[in-house]
Amino acid sequence: MRLSQSDYQLIPVYEYGLLINFNIQFSDPAYIQQIKFEIEKKFKSVSIDFVPAYHSLTIHLLPPHVVTTIIMDIDSILRDFEWNEIEKEKALLNIPVCFADAFASDKKRICDLLHKDWATITKELTQQTFTVYMLGFLPGFAYMGMLPETLKLPRLESPRKKVAAGSVAIADLQTGIYPTDSPGGWNIIGRTPIPMFDLKNEQPTLLHVGNSVRYVEITEDEFYVIQNKPMQWKTQVA
């Protein structure tokens, strides 16, 4: 697969920032990741951050390198870009989630809006394999998708002042896990005892763009056991 000129736009967003907006719906974030690696390789010395999102990649440059100095080169990289085949078999991360009442603040709302019982809803959720499309909002907050249409819900009318760290939430066709206590407007369906953001780790965030993720149901007792010894939970499955 190759990009054509009409597949993307290059938008200088500020003196040191370039936004690449893709007009294609990518089936897999690995497509943007491949472009990101290619650009990162060539522009490492003049850039600071590469922020992938659903249909975009934002490049933050290292001052005093201004955006106009790279735009032509980025354009030629994209024009010549050819994707490698996307690996179908990717490492899968199993995240333990407890759906007990104590953790599912929006249980009633979710059941009412979806006209389904709790067991059906949580079963549907745990049968899915999600993909991490982007990180944002908070350190380590992964936007994952896609939920089946049967679990599609609007956000809360007004966000909660405080959502507990580890809360697993759904909104529209996305799911995410709050890494730290924070305000939040998504529907809370459960909680994981596994830390999503831990500065003690070399990689401070558990999830990264392109990861495949499944939710594995655990009981409340198991929740506290894993919370005490999160290292004993095998997140990664081959």
Partner: peptide, 10 residues
Amino acid sequence: RLGFRSVGIP
């Protein structure tokens, strides 16, 4: 904190 925006760290 530069270099961590891709994992949501501001």
